[in-house]
């Protein structure tokens, strides 16, 4: 299962606005995608409730994973998003 570990760049972490941008992108992807804190339990990257409840902070290491056709591309796309500053 393709996965990538990245450091969250958004200064406020995955709070309301960055979380919304991330979840919207994840929801558009054709495959199931998950987000986990490094070493933690994965949650659906397509759920605002679950992503916000993860309480991801700036600088946290998180794991993005996906499965199925196109999983690697999906992981890359979300990983790049997490590594950019979504606060603006």
């Amino acid at each position: 299962m393709p996965e990538r570990t990245v450091t969250v760049a958004s200064k406020v972490g995955l709070h309301a606005r960055p979380a919304a941008v991330f979840v919207k992108k994840a929801s558009e992807l054709p495959v199931p995608v998950t987000l986990a804190k490094d070493g933690g339990k994965p949650v659906s990257a397509k759920s605002m409730l679950q992503v916000m409840s993860l309480d991801v902070r700036h600088g946290d290491r998180v794991v993005v994973a996906a499965e199925g056709d196109g999983a690697a591309a999906a992981v890359d796309e979300l990983a790049e998003l997490l590594e950019s500053d979504l606060d603006g």
């Binding site: 606005r17 979380a19 919304a20 941008v21």
Partner: peptide
């Protein structure tokens, strides 16, 4: 007055 909330992106 915030496009993310106004655009229902959060919900």
């Amino acid at each position: 007055p915030d496009p993310v909330f106004a655009g229902l992106m959060v919900g």
